[in-house]
Amino acid sequence: MKQGKIRIIAWLYCTLFFTLFSGGAYAHAFPVRSSPEVGSTLATAPKSVTIWYDADLNALFTKMTVKNGADQVVSENSRVSAHDQRKLTALLQPIGPGRYMVYWSAVASDGHHTEGHWPFTVK
């Protein structure tokens, strides 16, 4: 009986772990990639910043702001894509050479909140 219980517990964990990587996401939302890339140096100024997350986002409470080295906001129209709930984009005003910081605040569809910031540079 003890061996049977242990076997059941071990395989339950195995099954649950398989489940959690095969289904949809209802967890804290963290970035999986971005454009521009985190910490990158660009030859030309981008027109927007996009971050893709690993969980569906609550469009109402998720936002992104981009600031320049003088702590001035240079972004606008931050929004979650209507066609991809894991994609957050903000348009940029015309920007020149310098260091910029992307600030993001995400609320996943299950209500968990995450936030972060990362730099990129325009040569």
């Binding site: 772990f17 990587f21 967890a27 968990h112």
Partner: peptide, 12 residues
């Protein structure tokens, strides 16, 4: 568990 976790997504 280790093998099946490889194609997974992220966090928390």
């Amino acid at each position: 568990v280790i093998i099946l976790s490889w194609p997974g997504i992220l966090w928390a």
